[in-house]
């Protein structure tokens, strides 16, 4: 069995974030609502939580972290997390925000699968900060929804 490392898990998350940017871009292109377009454009542009978290680390620290082994491979990030969330062109801003909140949950699940394992403290710190970033994003999305502007 191949050894799974932190780098593998982060690659999985990075691929997911890239797909997510495409997903929001598609929503922005297809929507018939100016508000949803404004919102989806914004969410696509601000979807860099993973790279932001990694930028906070020094490059040597980052390289060291990448090579840490993970005992159990986390369940692959379920791409249906995006695909089963196809939105009609007339979806409302509230519907888009609800889905964005669920999608944040998919990433939180992935990071928690690593945190549930017996991993080194440095790895734990990184994944806890990633969970925190996604939870922070969820709070922001809920606040945007509560402002009822779009």
């Amino acid at each position: 069995m191949a050894i799974i490392t932190v780098a593998d898990v982060l690659k999985m998350a990075e691929d997911f974030e890239t797909k997510l940017v495409d997903y929001y871009t598609k929503i922005a292109e297809q929507t018939t609502s100016d508000g949803v377009k404004l919102l989806a454009d914004y969410m696509g542009r601000h979807r860099r939580h993973l790279s932001e978290a990694l930028e906070r680390l020094g490059s040597a620290e980052r390289e060291e972290l990448y090579s840490f082994p993970i005992r159990y491979e986390p369940l692959a990030l379920d791409y249906t997390c995006l695909e089963r969330r196809e939105l009609p062109p007339d979806a409302t801003a509230a519907e888009v925000l609800d889905i964005a909140i669920e999608i944040d949950g998919c990433l939180i699940d992935l990071y928690r699968q690593v945190l549930a394992q017996d991993v080194d403290q440095e790895v734990k710190d990184l994944f806890e900060s990633l969970v925190q970033a996604e939870e922070g994003d969820t709070i922001e999305l809920k606040k945007i929804k509560a402002m009822d502007y779009f």
């Binding site: 978290a53 906070r56 734990k124 710190d125 990184l126 806890e128 900060s129 925190q132 970033a133 922070g136």
Partner: peptide, 13 residues
């Protein structure tokens, strides 16, 4: 703590 880092920039830390 890791729970703080998402809210702090590197220069703040």
């Amino acid at each position: 703590l890791p729970t703080e880092t998402p809210f702090l920039t590197r220069s703040q830390v």
